[in-house]
Structure formats: structure tokens, C-alpha cells
Amino acid sequence: MPSLPDMATPNVTELAAGRRGASRDMLAEVPDLKPAFFEWLCRMGDTTLILGHRLSEWCGHGPALEEDIAIANTALDLIGHTQMWLNLAGEVEGQGRSADDLAYLRDAMHFRNALLVELPNGDIGRTLMRQFLFDAWHHEMLGRLEGSAVTEVAEIAAKAKKEVAYHLDRSSDLVVRLGDGTEESHARMQDALDILWPYTGEFCTGDAVDAAVAKAGIAPRPEDLRAPWLAFVGEVLEEATLDMPQNGHAQKGGRQGRHTEHLGYLLAEMQFLQRAYPGAEW
């Protein structure tokens, strides 16, 4: 396995603390940026929300108590990230929408998560493979975001990155172990990889929104993450004795609001109470 990030790196939040309020200054200077910035924040927050939701479905059904507990920890971290990203999205949008409003009162066409995370869990192997492919991207992304021109983004990234370093450590370790475990576990992991692979391309494919936030120094260009992501994933898969799929076709659209059929059902379940009892407090 490639060497993993050092989880004891000093808190970048403290380093960034001198730059408070940068987003407001920036939006005052470049008002055109607001819609793209908002959309980009939703992409981050919706992706962690939907993946956290999917992982939470495992609670009580894990293959071993230890794994049940570990998956819930990852889910809890991702829900925490969601609150930070969507809160900031609501602030940037300036329409008074809270993180909960965004999570519970938008329909599928307004969700901006990547398709990979809305796919059903499948068996535990597919869940872990999805987690690994996502974590490898997530960790790289957050590392870049620590240097964001917007303080709030850098702060969220710094906090999240510590947690995600552990997610990646765990998921890559399990991919190696299950890939190089029994014949059955190997076959299941290869199968999971083949099914999920086409959904990874979307993470490293930019559009006008990405270009705008990259130009403003808020976030990296998605394309720039591809090489390091691929290198890391390749090393882990090799150690796991798994073959990297040759299928280069990417399933895309989630980040622009064009989803799989699965998201509608997920939202119907997740949003049920807020939709059935509008305005109630819980």
C-alpha cells in the first residue's frame, strides 16, 4: 500500500485563522461568482450527505460488530461534513436557507452529488470499494482545499481531512485484505470494482462551475486531481491483486443534477417527515 498521510499534521485551521471573512470580501469583489460558488458547495455537501446516508443504512446489519461500528463512525463524520458544507452554501446563497432546508427540501434535479455515492450499497464489498474509490479522491481534494483562497473552505477542509485520512487508511486496507483474501472475496471485490469504475470519472471531469471556482482560487480544477488519484488507486489495487478496469467510459451528470433512478427513492425516504409535515420542528 502507498504510504498514507500523516494524521498528526498540525491543525491548518490555526494557520488559516488570520484570513477570516475572506469569502464575503471575495463575493463583494466578484458578485458573479456567487451562483458557481453556491453550486460547488452543494456538490461537496450533497456528496457527503448522500454517502453518509447510504453508509447509515448498514447500522445494525454489518458483517461483524466491529465493522458495524466502524462504518457508523465514517457515516457520522460525513454527516458532520455535510452540515459544514451546506451551512456555508446557505450563507453564500444568502436566501436564508439552512443546511437542513437544503438537505430536506430540494428534489433530485437540484441535488449535486456525484452518481457514485447514490448507488445502492450492494454487498459489504461493494460498499467498501465505493468508499475506497471515493476516499482516495476526497482526501486529495481536501488536501488542495486547505490552500483555498476562501478561509471558510480552507477551515472545513482542514477539519474534514483529518477524519478522511483515517477513512482512506481503513478503506484501502480493507480493499487490499479482501482483494487478496479468499477466492470468493477476491471475486466479489473485482466485481465491485468493475461495476463502480465507470462512476469514478465524474469526480475528475470539470465544467463551467468548476472552472469559475478554480479561477477564483477556491478549489482545484477536477482534472488536476486525476493523476494523483489514479496513482494512489493503482498502487492499492495492485497490492489487492485486483485488475484496474480498462473501461474508460464515464457515467456523468450527478454534479449537474442529472441522477440515476436510485436518488429519488433515497430522497423520498430521507425527506419523508419534512415533506409530510411542512414547517414542523423536530
Binding site: R177, G181, T182
Partner: peptide
Amino acid sequence: TAWEDGAWFREGLTAYA
């Protein structure tokens, strides 16, 4: 179901170890 579906996972980790 959770126990039976998880058998290959537990066995896979044992085999790797």
C-alpha cells in the same frame, strides 16, 4: 441475514491475515 451475508467478509480477512 447480516451474519450469513457477512461470512465471506470475515473469512476473507482471516485468509489474508
